[in-house]
Write a protein that binds this DNA or RNA. Sequence first.
DNA 1: TACCTCCTAATTGTATACAATTATAGTATA
DNA 2: TATACTATAATTGTATACAATTAGGAGGTA
Lengths: 224, 224
Amino acid sequence: MKKAILENTGHGSLGNKIFNILRDRILNEEYAKGQKLNEVALSKELEISRTPIREALKQLELEGLVRSEPNKGVFVIGFSHRDINDMLEIRYVLEALAVELAIERINSVQLDKIKEAYLAMEEASKVRDQDKFNDANIAFHESIYKGTQSQYFEQLLRDINYYIHVTSRHSIKQPNRLDSAAIEHREIYEAILAGDKKRAVEKVKKHIRKTQFLVKHYYESKDH
Amino acid sequence: MKKAILENTGHGSLGNKIFNILRDRILNEEYAKGQKLNEVALSKELEISRTPIREALKQLELEGLVRSEPNKGVFVIGFSHRDINDMLEIRYVLEALAVELAIERINSVQLDKIKEAYLAMEEASKVRDQDKFNDANIAFHESIYKGTQSQYFEQLLRDINYYIHVTSRHSIKQPNRLDSAAIEHREIYEAILAGDKKRAVEKVKKHIRKTQFLVKHYYESKDH
DNA sequence: TACCTCCTAATTGTATACAATTATAGTATA
DNA sequence: TATACTATAATTGTATACAATTAGGAGGTA
């Protein structure tokens, strides 16, 4: 019964599945800030042993979503609007760097995937399919990360992007945003294809700043 | 007998100690690239159970130093000179961003620690104490990271900095580098103290670029 | 009441046992 | 010889048992 929760959740070991579940819970603020994540309670709830739970908690700790106090337990750190904004600032500089490296190093397969993702975004934009658009959006950026041919870079940006995406996905759900976002991605793709670093960096920066502005605006309007 | 290896190695749980040991081994290239890290072999060598070993391997995986194949094991990824340079590029943009944020947010305690670290560097430079200089250097930068008041930022930059420090520490061991490095840090500190973002960013960038140049030069001369 | 001490229960840390998967080697077959 | 199959060993994944540490409360004392 309860195990259904595990079935549609990522692939790989139980630990990874639990990690995905807990990460989403934290990013969706289902746990209060500072709340302790009890191992046996979680293992009972999810009907598995403590071992995969501990694996997942370790992973969350390294992602910076919980902090672990020796012999005491792990506690939810949570995040503020400022944290989200900081993440976007980090993403701003790193995406710009990534696209520069990608232009130098990307191969044709990865380039095709960018194009594919961009076309999917354009299509999703036309039919107003937010979910499809989001998936294509993620695929677009991850293809750029892969293009850097840097394992570390790829992983780093994927994590940051996921964090931002989950925490601020509501703020981007604006129907008329899809069209402009599609255009922005097209511009980025074309600059990469042309091997024009300067233009690519400029377009990426413009895109991230726009996203940042929307997120910020969303939270400010929510606070008042 | 063998347990002596664990005694001077970090604090906290066994898993963390093992993590530190294995990370240093990988960064010091004591394991060949692609080599498999066998859990029972490691647990026998270090005379502990598999549990802390697995913890450490998980941590290494998230740091991007090993990759894990389901039901097969974890394998050393290793790193190239290009990886080190990529790290320095990432550090270049992130340190610049960090110092900007730090100027906005830093408190007096953290500011004092920067000053303290800078003075220690100057002293170490005078007496040509490389180890003391390195420690102070790390403390200096980590105080800036803390000044951002961003848990995530702090952790991210600490990891990157450690990676760079361990992999390229030989290249920076140049006695006459100490003096100029001390001056560079002094300039950074003074700019932070004055709250001059523009100048601080400029000085940080100059400092990282210089480090990057030395590391690059070192590896290029080693290759030929 | 306030504070200390001790005891017990709860919780985390580590070791071991068991299950599931994968690698290896040997044999049979074409 | 080369290939496919099978049995066995080795290895990882998960569960459970045990050890060490911490939290919380009962009871005593000033």
